Computed example of a mutant assay.
Amino acid sequence: MDPIIRVQEETGSEIVPIKVLVVDDSAVVRQVIQEVLSVESDIQVMGAAPDPIFAMERMKKEWPDVIILDIEMPRMDGITFLKQIMAQRPTPVIICSSLAEAGAKVSIEALAAGALSIITKPSIGLRGFLQDASLDLVQSVRTAAKARVSRPTAATGVMAERSVTPKLTADVMLEAPSAGRSALVHATERVIAMGVSTGGTQALEVILPNLPLNVPGMVIVQHMPEKFTAAFAARLNGLSTIEVKEAQNGDRVMAGRALIAPGGKHMMLKRNANNYYVEVADGPLVSRHRPSVDVLFRSAAKFAGANAVGIIMTGMGDDGAKGLKEMHDCGAKTYAQDEDSSVVFGMPKEAIKLGGVDHIVPLHRIPDIITKA
């Protein structure tokens, strides 16, 4: 039995709960989070600390499986504590902070330090918010417990997206493509379509800074809420030789440029003669996400066909699996990140199960695959 997943065996053995440590200077937050998590049989709050110094003393006795961490606290701030944890013993960390709501910069800094996900809480009405967001908090803990966490060389994770809406398909945004290579007239330019979720910020910081200027144009969906993608793209742009930017409607897809779908919007690849560009549009959640990888991949299948390369990487759930199969059926080369290098082997696994993946590759090989495209 996988000790992280903690599923009860058929023999009736006792469930081993996910041990959670809450670190927050607010007594209300500590109390409410403990109340929310304590009702779950597979989660155990092993302790709560008002600041990182107290937390470190508690962790000397017992190490948690997941840490829920505030940013602004007395004696030591959360970012400094997070860096110490990742240097000493990498552990899944969920940031739960009102400071993150004030702007994306501190959130990107937390991801760069190794946080797996971020939940923003309001400055007022904390008790009501945390009680309303209990499902999100519980799901974030369970997702974090399944993650493979390593010492970060770059940003990691994805902000938690709150959603209990029906699971719609890409049909709500555009029609399915006609399968087969003959469905599209050959063009001279290649285009790379990538989809990624939990653990994706770390993966993209491994890939994009290692690409030369002459790589094909890239369109990327990273599951991330509104207001965060612009800061994330700017960070990647500063680390990379190629241009990385948050996509705007009508942006051209061209060599040496990577366009990242803006949070809260869908991004679709479109074509005008031999030139590719993106359409950024409102719309309902698709596969419970906006932006959705399925929407991007379907548009790549429809408008690029065999001229596209599809890459699906680390992430929870199955967004992108159907879209990658559509790309595959239209002649695109398709790749999935392997389990060993994925933080969460959800999206790649589902794409492989559908038969839409040509090659399964480790993260370190993806820059070379893109360069040779």
Results as ranks from 00 to 15, higher is better:
369 I>Y: 08
283 G>H: 02
201 T>P: 06
198 T>M: 13
203 A>Q: 00
152 P>E: 05
6 R>G: 15
127 R>D: 07
250 G>A: 07
332 A>P: 07
35 E>F: 03
111 L>Q: 02
373 A>K: 10
282 D>W: 06
283 G>P: 06
33 I>G: 08
259 L>Y: 01
266 H>S: 14
195 G>L: 07
363 L>I: 03
115 A>N: 06
27 A>N: 09
12 G>S: 05
302 K>A: 10
136 D>L: 14
163 S>P: 01
243 E>M: 09
226 E>Q: 14
19 K>L: 11
103 G>Y: 06
167 K>V: 02
158 V>W: 03
325 K>A: 12
50 P>L: 00
72 E>Y: 00
269 L>D: 10
32 V>K: 01
27 A>K: 10
71 I>P: 11
316 M>Y: 02
361 V>A: 01
165 T>E: 11
311 I>P: 13
208 L>I: 14
194 M>W: 03
169 T>I: 09
166 P>I: 03
347 M>Q: 11
128 G>F: 00
303 F>P: 02
189 E>S: 15
227 K>E: 06
110 A>F: 01
224 M>D: 09
152 P>G: 03
304 A>E: 08
65 D>A: 09
25 D>T: 04
264 G>L: 00
189 E>N: 14
98 S>K: 08
244 V>T: 00
328 H>F: 15
41 S>Q: 12
81 F>N: 12
273 A>R: 11
317 G>I: 06
236 L>D: 09
260 I>Y: 00
263 G>V: 07
39 V>I: 04
64 P>W: 00
293 V>M: 07
191 V>D: 13
218 M>V: 09
322 K>V: 13
89 R>L: 04
280 V>A: 04
365 R>C: 03
285 L>T: 08
183 A>C: 11
366 I>G: 13
203 A>T: 04
327 M>L: 05
163 S>Y: 10
125 G>W: 01
89 R>E: 11
238 G>Y: 01
265 K>C: 15
233 A>R: 10
272 N>L: 15
62 E>V: 02
372 K>E: 13
8 Q>S: 14
229 T>Y: 10
42 D>Q: 13
346 G>C: 03
267 M>Y: 06
261 A>K: 04
258 A>D: 13
300 A>K: 00
156 T>Q: 13
272 N>T: 13
90 P>D: 09
373 A>Y: 05
